[in-house]
Design a protein around this nucleic acid. Structure first.
Length: 256
DNA sequence: ATGCCTCAGCTCCTGAGA
């Protein structure tokens, strides 16, 4: 079973690339972030034709997430139960016995800002909920655009970007607390090339210079850890003509 | 240097992303 996450920065612009990518990478589950469209505009038809069941949690202009799966997802939940939020950031469902949570974590803009405070509150809300989800669903995958790096290895310039957004101790504390619930960074379960990133700034030739950060993650629960056979970042679509600034991340699990 | 890209929208500029 293969599951993937991809922040596509506007599904309106990127739909052809998503469909092409699914043809080349027929994963069982794909979660998308930053649809930047309302549910009425979501291209259900195109995904049906591609062989996917789709659930959408959209929003005008910003945010918006979707859950695509080859077999139907059940018990679909939108956003974080118990955490009041105006923004469409989370969509969850059970696919083939695995609880899948797709999330677009807040950016946070800059430490000390209102948006940073919101990010910290959101992270606490997410953690409180995921803790209970893990009890109900031991086989759980939490994946998406976390907008947080784990450590210096995830940052192209850890000195210059020290204490800036995605690299602060506060953000990393919350990411660590999430992991401490009984989750594992699937990417680091395997040897990986140095300077591996999932996002590169559009500006200043960020991608060709490999000036990026690893901020898109797939966390797997204790119950799934031993069944993970691989995790990769696919940089191919970042080379497209009008790419998203993020690359998809894929994890493979042994079928159980 | 608060911009360099990219995207959405009450679109010819602004806010947001990261």
């Amino acid at each position: 079973m293969k599951l993937a996450t991809w922040n596509i920065n506007s599904l309106t612009v990127r739909l052809p690339q998503v469909l092409d990518w699914l043809t080349a990478n027929p994963v069982d589950v794909l979660v998308l972030q930053e649809l930047k469209m309302t549910d009425e505009k979501f291209p259900f038809e195109a995904f049906t034709q591609a062989g996917y069941h789709a659930h959408c949690f959209g929003q005008k202009t910003y945010n918006g997430v979707a859950l695509l799966s080859k077999t139907p997802a059940t018990d679909v939940v939108k956003n974080i139960p118990g955490f009041s939020d105006d923004m469409a950031r989370v969509i969850s469902g059970t696919v083939s016995g695995v609880r899948v949570i797709g999330a677009y974590f807040p950016n946070g803009q800059e430490p000390g800002s209102d948006k940073f405070d919101y990010k910290m509150n959101w992270l606490k809300g997410l953690r409180d909920w995921v803790k209970t989800e893990l009890v109900a669903h031991p086989k759980l995958v939490l994946m998406g655009d976390y907008n947080i790096t784990f450590d210096d290895a995830d940052v192209w310039d850890p000195v210059g970007l020290k204490d800036t957004i995605h690299c602060t101790d506060e953000e990393r504390y919350h990411l660590g607390a999430l992991v401490a619930l009984g989750l594992h960074d699937a990417y680091r379960l395997f040897p990986q090339a140095e300077k591996s990133y999932s996002w590169w700034d559009y500006r200043n030739f960020g991608f060709p210079r490999n000036r990026g950060m690893r901020i898109d993650h797939i966390l797997v629960s204790n119950a799934l850890k031993s069944s993970v056979t691989g995790c990769v970042i696919d940089k191919t679509p970042r080379k497209n003509e009008r790419p998203s600034d993020h690359a998809p991340v894929i994890v493979e699990l042994l079928d159980s």
